[in-house]
């Protein structure tokens, strides 16, 4: 199946990719809040996406606390869009 990506297809990872594509870049806490995930579950999924080269992270200090910002890489955006196209193909006309 052309474009279908098993790594992205896991529901939480698909939702993470959907959020990052729409937001451009989002803070870890925003992903947690918007997706209703615990920090550990979100870390696990973002870790898998980072390992695959689909997501990159940037650390920034705010109010003396370190915040993590996440964004899709070019490869991640392409894989996500390819995956959506594959899902649309499965759904059919």
């Amino acid at each position: 199946m052309n474009g279908f990506d098993h790594l992205i297809h896991a529901p939480n990872r698909l939702r993470i990719c959907a959020l990052l594509e729409a937001a451009g870049e989002a803070e870890f806490a925003v992903l947690q809040e918007q997706l209703g995930l615990s920090a550990s579950v979100l870390s696990k999924h973002t870790g898998a996406l980072i390992d695959a080269g689909y997501v990159e992270q940037r650390k920034a200090v705010r109010d003396t606390r370190q915040r993590v910002w996440l964004r899709l890489t070019a490869a991640g955006r392409k894989a996500y869009q390819g995956h959506l196209a594959a899902l649309r193909e499965i759904v059919g006309p």
Partner: peptide, 22 residues
């Protein structure tokens, strides 16, 4: 390996919902 059309539709709807709220 390959979701059913209903599963694919549900996944697309879920992604669209997240994109809307974002």
């Amino acid at each position: 390996d390959r979701p059913t059309p209903d599963e694919a539709r549900a996944a697309l709807a879920d992604a669209a919902c997240v994109q809307e709220s974002t």
